[in-house]
Amino acid sequence: MDFDWTMAGGSFLVAIVVGLTGMGGGALMTPMLVTFFGVSPLAAVSSDLVAAAVMKPVGSAVHYRQGTINMRLVGWLCLGSVPAAFSGVLLARAIGHGARVEDVISKAMGVALLIAAAGLVVRGYLAHRARSGADPADGGTPEITIRPVPTVLVGLVGGLVVGITSVGSGSLIIVALLALYPALKANQLVGTDLLQAVPLVFAAALGHLLFGDFRMEVTAALLVGSVPGVYLGSKVSSRAPGGLIRRVLALVLVASALKMFGLGAVPLAWTMVTLASATVAFWLVQRSRSTRAGDGGDAARDASADQLVH
Results as ranks from 00 to 15, higher is better:
Gly191Ala: 01
Thr192Asn: 06
Thr192Met: 03
Thr192His: 06
Asp193Lys: 07
Leu194Arg: 00
Leu194Trp: 01
Leu194Cys: 02
Leu195Met: 09
Leu195Gln: 05
Gln196Asp: 02
Ala197Asn: 12
Leu200Asn: 09
Leu200Tyr: 09
Val201His: 14
Val201Ser: 04
Phe202Glu: 13
Ala203Arg: 06
Ala204Glu: 07
Ala204Ser: 02
Ala205Glu: 15
Leu206Tyr: 06
Gly207Leu: 13
His208Ile: 05
His208Pro: 04
Leu209Trp: 01
Leu209Glu: 04
Leu210Met: 11
Phe211Met: 13
Phe211Trp: 12
Phe211Leu: 11
Asp213His: 04
Asp213Thr: 09
Phe214Thr: 03
Arg215Asp: 05
Met216Gln: 13
Met216Asp: 03
Glu217Arg: 01
Glu217Lys: 07
Val218Gln: 05
Val218Ile: 15
Thr219Asp: 03
Thr219Glu: 07
Thr219Lys: 00
Ala220Gln: 06
Ala221Pro: 07
Ala221Gly: 07
Ala221Thr: 00
Leu222Pro: 03
Leu223Cys: 00
Val224Met: 01
Val224Phe: 03
Val224His: 02
Gly225Val: 08
Gly225Tyr: 02
Ser226Cys: 13
Val227Arg: 00
Gly229Ile: 12
Gly229Pro: 08
Gly229Cys: 04
Tyr231Glu: 07
Tyr231Ser: 12
Leu232Asn: 06
Gly233Val: 06
Gly233Met: 10
Gly233Pro: 10
Ser234Gln: 11
Ser234Phe: 08
Ser234Asp: 08
Lys235Glu: 12
Lys235Asp: 12
Lys235Arg: 14
Val236Phe: 14
Val236Ser: 10
Val236Trp: 14
Ser237Thr: 04
Ser237Asp: 10
Ser238Asp: 15
Ser238Asn: 01
Ser238Arg: 10
Arg239Gln: 14
Ala240Ile: 13
Pro241Asn: 10
Gly242Ala: 12
Gly243Lys: 08
Gly243Ser: 12
Leu244Met: 10
Ile245Asn: 10
Arg246Lys: 14
Arg247Leu: 09
Arg247Tyr: 04
Arg247Lys: 08
Val248Asp: 11
Val248Met: 14
Leu251Ile: 07
Val254His: 13
Val254Ser: 14
Ala255Trp: 00
Ala255Val: 03
Ala255Thr: 04
Ala255Phe: 02
